[in-house]
Design a protein around this nucleic acid. Structure first.
Length: 202
DNA sequence: CTACCGATTGACT
DNA sequence: GTCAATCGGTAGA
């Protein structure tokens, strides 16, 4: 596996990166690096799976029935985090497009790059495949909770996304996982064959 | 206030 | 493969 460690010194992705359609951002986030830094050290992973949630004609999007206290971050600036709970677990998105768009990209899986010991402690398992494979698992491994809802991911503090190496990994697309509406839209993107992609078959 | 439910996960057959 | 624990958000009485 390539050595990505020096890449953490790369600046965070700029706001313009996020100020585009969620479908484009979701695909271009593949191969970037999600970084979490705190007093316990720096933990990071390579983004290998994402899902786009659209501002228009997407009943599966949390913003589709209007603004509520829960989804308010989705109507804020691009490049900020939208962190929500589902089944008593946290999941993280990056907000896309512009103010009031109500669109975002869900980070669904990472391949661990740094800080595996810290991830193991937080996840209470030593199994590498279980550390960051799934949207709630990666949030637990990176200690991402409600305090990061609305967090500016372009500041490069505590939680941000840094540029990864240019990758020519093939990308697959398919229906999003876990939704009961708009299942016909191929808005889930992942590196084909990567073992850290979520789903019951891995 | 109550009732319902979900962009999930882990345990189990 | 199946199943349910879990709990904050949301809508409605």
């Amino acid at each position: 596996m390539p050595n990505y460690l020096n890449d953490f010194l790369a600046p965070p992705l700029p706001r313009e990166f996020y100020a585009r359609s969620p479908t484009v951002v979701a695909q271009e986030l593949l191969g970037q690096v999600l970084v979490r830094s705190d007093a316990e050290g720096t933990v990071a992973g390579w983004i290998v799976e994402t899902e786009a949630y659209l501002s228009e004609n997407d009943p599966a999007c949390h913003a589709s029935r209007g603004r509520t206290p829960r989804n308010a971050a989705m109507f804020g600036p691009p490049g900020h985090a939208y962190v929500y709970t589902i089944h008593a677990r946290w999941c993280m998105n990056a907000v896309t497009e512009g103010i009031d768009s109500g669109s975002a990209v869900l980070i669904r899986a990472l391949e661990p790059l740094q800080g595996e010991e810290q991830m193991q402690l937080r996840r209470r398992t030593e199994k590498r495949l279980d550390l960051t494979r799934g949207p709630a698992r990666l949030c637990e491994a990176l200690a991402i909770g409600r305090e990061f809802n609305g967090w500016d991911l372009t500041r490069g503090e505590s939680l941000w996304i840094a540029a990864g190496k240019v990758s020519d990994e093939p990308i697959s697309a398919g229906p999003r996982i876990g939704i009961s509406q708009a299942m016909d839209l191929p808005l889930r993107f992942y590196f084909t064959g990567n073992r850290y992609v979520s789903g019951r078959r891995g």
